[in-house]
């Protein structure tokens, strides 16, 4: 592949990823916003009418929170939700610095791939065995876990695409 074709491929991948990331963040945002509403309503119902929303705790903890955090990972990372220590970086010339950052992305992608793979195993296991947690209803365990492999997979792709894109290492949020 020529370097021009390679750049175009990476650019197209970046474009496609953005579209998916934007959908995921809307779903994740809705989940977290919904959690706030449920938690507040539960407290008010409990306090005023002694009638708590008994489904709220598990719904929030095991589903909405996992969904919200996981689906926010790739979009959050792309839009600057990361913090790195610039102390040494700033003393390194731009060329090697970009290389370092690319290598860092790949290292992080490997770490997250393991996490993604392990969580995927747990998720498929829960779905295959139809694991149900007993509560006010039978809560399906798989639907609590599935968001993690999705979010992690998209984050790994984002890290890899960034590792092979042109970027300005001086911009705190490159996108």
């Amino acid at each position: 592949m020529t370097s021009g074709a390679f750049k175009r491929t990476v650019g197209a991948a970046d474009h496609a990823l953005r579209a998916v990331e934007n959908v995921l963040i809307v779903v994740g945002g809705a989940a977290i916003a919904l959690a706030m509403v449920f938690v507040s309503s539960d407290a008010v119902m409990r306090h005023l009418f002694s009638a708590p929303l008994t489904f709220q705790y598990t719904l929030t903890e095991s589903y909405l929170m996992v969904m919200g955090f996981s689906l926010a990972l790739p979009w959050g990372y792309r839009t600057g939700g990361r913090i790195r220590i610039q102390l040494l970086l700033n003393t390194i010339p731009k060329g090697p610095r970009i290389l370092l950052l690319r290598a860092g992305n790949i290292l992080a992608a490997i770490y997250l791939t393991f996490i993604c793979w392990q969580a995927l195993g747990k998720t498929t296991d829960a779905f295959v065995k139809n694991d149900l947690m007993m509560g006010v209803i039978d809560w399906p365990v798989g639907w609590s876990w599935v968001w993690i492999p999705i979010g992690m997979f998209m984050l790994v792709l984002r890290l890899l695409v960034d590792a092979f894109s042109d970027f300005d290492p001086d911009a705190p949020a490159a996108h």
């Binding site: 913090i83 790195r84 970086l89």
Partner: peptide, 18 residues
């Protein structure tokens, strides 16, 4: 080392820990 090489903090902790 990972922190100084510019890995984002959460990843540096996770990679170094693993």
């Amino acid at each position: 080392l990972f922190l100084l090489l510019g890995l984002p903090v959460g990843f540096a902790l996770g990679v170094a820990g693993s």
